[in-house]
Design a binder for these strands. Structure first.
Lengths: 207, 207
DNA sequence: GCTTGAATTAGACATATGTCTGTTTTATAA
DNA sequence: TTATAAAACAGACATATGTCTAATTCAAGC
């Protein structure tokens, strides 16, 4: 393959992806026009190459038959927004959320919720009051992960430190005290996977 | 219109919407098959009715030419991810993004892009390196807004301060210097509306 | 039942679109 | 430069798909 072709093919792939995401995959001739090919076959050859290399899927013979491979099409789901979670009430809270946001999830088979941040205890990690934390429900987490755990009757956000004989939950703010508990006493609600902040007011809470 | 037709038409609309959201609008004949019509024209008539009532848009004569009207489709959009923007190259950068994220947009009729944060100049506002900023393209902004402006050949993020006779662009970090320019020299690319941080690695950069 | 218009059916046609074959141009390396 | 394969081009063809017209069936009201 020629040097310039690599760049061109990337641009074609980006174009096709954009069209698909906008709701209508392009025809071969639309690709031809978008890239000023004089021949339909030129566009087709590039598309075929992208299919052959696995960057696009194709339903042969169908009009606008190009689609994104599975790993590229993220599932989107409605995620409930929780203002706070009281002890043992996660299920209840999930059933009566403050609202929902449609988000693409990277672990679409896991259960998620959004938790609105209160207080400054994680400001050292760039997590501030009002931020929405996307939490993947899990009962285990890796050392160093930011987790949501039930501490003294309320869900709180801390960084998890796994020690040989205990668990330490550290706020990222020197004004707050870390908590050290035994592994059995840890009531982990989930792992924070994303932080979202909305600067222009409350996001749509269509729930 | 007959009683049963109302229900059927709703089901057809839902089918078309689902197909569009999955990335490929159906052909008339696919609608025909999905609803067991013996004639193509039956499906076509229902689709035509949905177009006439404004629940679908259509590009006549085009294969798979049905699309969602603006108020339905643009609740979620594919937003291009830009790693950086060089002077005057926003259009080019938008055509060759690092990837896309599907996000619900609160100003669905405006153009948006995601900008990956470099440097610590806005850490005082809780914006850190690696964060993705959702930017709504705009040429004007309100006092106090966090904006993306072209400064010295590159897009940078600053807080906007509108003064009587000048514009001040302030980094939220004492280690950096504010910039003061006349209003005419301001090259505003957009307003930051959301901050997103992904803690478990790079979000899908499928572009 | 009869009437009437909506809904469906049947079939054909026009166009859009995918695909194929062969030729020409172009970039790259020897 | 020349040889070579990649890439682009040109044109044709096959199929998919949108659209049209007329006939038939069906549901709802009289």
């Amino acid at each position: 393959m020629r040097a310039a072709t690599i760049q061109l093919r990337k641009r074609i792939l980006a174009y096709v992806e954009r069209r698909i995401r906008q709701g209508q995959p392009p025809t071969v001739r639309e690709v031809q026009e978008a890239f000023d090919f004089a021949a339909v076959e030129s566009a087709r050859q590039h598309l075929k190459a992208l299919v052959d290399s696995g960057e696009l899927n194709q339903l042969s013979g169908q009009a606008r038959g190009y689609s994104l491979p599975r790993h590229k099409s993220l599932k989107r789901q409605s995620v409930p927004i929780l203002g706070s979670v009281q002890a043992g009430q996660l299920t209840t809270a999930l059933e009566d959320p403050d609202g929902f946001l449609d988000l693409p999830l990277r672990h679409p088979n896991d259960e998620h919720f959004l938790l609105r941040v209160k207080g400054q205890s994680m400001s050292g990690a760039g997590i501030h009051p009002g931020d929405l934390l996307l939490v993947r429900r899990a009962s285990v987490a890796r050392h160093g992960a930011i987790v949501v755990a039930m501490i003294e009757d309320e869900a709180t956000v801390k960084r998890l430190e796994i020690k040989p004989k205990s668990i330490k939950l550290t706020p990222e703010n020197p004004d707050f005290e870390p908590i050290e508990i035994t592994e059995g006493d840890l009531n982990l609600l989930g792992v924070v996977t994303e932080v979202h902040r909305y600067l222009e007011g409350i996001p749509s809470t269509d729930g």
